[in-house]
């Protein structure tokens, strides 16, 4: 089968997907992008859903070597109180955000299930969709959070390669590969409407990590057929993964999983983000600050990663509009979950 024949197939096989990710795919990147654009438009239309993160705490018991929250890095650490987090939320709500993502380091003592439940019950009045990106929890804890109004779960494996995983997660609860790997599974069982996975681009081998990610997403889609599975592309600063590779994997994943959400954060530069809008991306964060309290209090403390796209929400929305896409703020409703 020729490479272009694969692009006309729907669905494609996993072997086809490998070819899309190969050098052949890189050589045919334009054709790959055209197909990805076509499939995305068909399923999602010309829309980009916008969200923002709220960082609750940069305290962390882990020592991930690549992360600004690493417990060995001695920087100012804070955890927001429920009221402080609510102040942050009010700023984002005022900007116009309706979908938010609560993010935290792994500090179960401080950012406890009870803390999150209290916070979420306050946030429900401001937002239509509340997702979490915090440390892995048990199924029972997820059930509690879902019932409290959390509708989506984001959890990255960081790296699928076990050897590398061990090396970059030397200590703390996160060194347990399997517990982390099974997290989306527990979240899916708990009933979350959205499950978002990914790996950190630059930690492992791009090709084999992307294959693992695709398999993982496909598995979750099949098993949790009532949940929307999304994929993020968090690329480390100075990563060995090139713009071409990032583009290639976005397009290849779109063609392999035409209905998966594809998410791009402000880790990436404004120009690249804008150029990737028509290629397969369905969700974007905007105006993000990645340290706790950064929206409402002037307290420089360590951030999880440096933000590259520093534009305001209205600037990002205008860029989306300029590409002929509609920036969508609300695409969910808190009433889907009954309290």
């Amino acid at each position: 089968m020729t490479f272009l024949d694969i692009l006309n197939k729907n669905p494609i096989t996993f072997d086809d997907f490998k070819r899309l990710l190969s050098k052949e795919g890189a050589d045919n990147i334009e054709a790959l992008a055209q197909r990805s654009h076509q499939l995305t438009k068909k399923h999602f239309g010309k829309t980009i859903q916008l969200y923002a993160p709220i960082y609750l705490s940069n305290e962390c018991n882990n020592q991930c070597v690549y992360c600004g929250f690493n417990s060995k890095v001695s920087e100012k650490r804070i955890s927001l109180t429920v009221d402080q987090a609510y102040d942050e939320a009010k700023v984002l709500s005022k900007m116009g955000f309706k979908h938010i993502l609560l993010v935290s380091g792994e500090k179960k003592e401080t950012i406890s299930v009870d803390y999150l439940k209290k916070l979420v019950s306050k946030l429900r009045g401001l937002f239509s969709s509340i997702s979490i990106e915090i440390y892995p929890m048990t199924e029972e804890e997820y059930i509690e959070l879902f019932a409290a109004g959390v509708d989506g779960l984001t959890i990255y494996q960081e790296v699928y390669d076990r050897e590398i995983y061990k090396k970059v997660h030397p200590a703390g609860p996160k060194s347990d590969y399997d517990f982390r790997f099974d997290t989306p599974e527990r979240g899916g069982t708990a009933g979350f409407y959205r499950i978002n996975i990914g790996y950190l681009l630059g930690l492992g081998d791009w090709f084999s990590e992307t294959l693992a990610l695709a398999k993982h997403a496909e598995y979750l889609q099949k098993k949790f057929w009532q949940s929307q599975v999304s994929i993020s592309f968090p690329r480390l600063k100075g990563s060995s993964v090139s713009d071409l590779q990032l583009t290639q994997m976005i397009c290849a994943l779109r063609i392999f999983l035409p209905k998966a959400g594809l998410v791009l954060s402000t880790r990436e530069q404004a120009e690249l983000r804008d150029n990737l809008i028509p290629l397969g991306i369905t969700q974007m964060s905007a105006a993000s600050r990645t340290s706790p309290g950064a929206y409402s209090i002037d307290a420089p403390s360590s951030s999880q990663f440096p933000v590259s796209d520093l534009r305001t929400l209205s600037e990002v929305a205008a860029a989306i509009t300029a590409k002929g896409y509609e920036p969508v703020f609300k695409d969910w409703d808190s009433n889907f979950i009954m309290l």
Binding site: F44, G45, K46, T47, T321, G324, Y325, E326
Partner: peptide
């Protein structure tokens, strides 16, 4: 009046 109903999703702008 019209036998065509229309949906409002997926449009590039309002």
């Amino acid at each position: 009046k019209s036998r065509l109903f229309i949906g409002t999703g997926k449009f590039p702008s309002t």
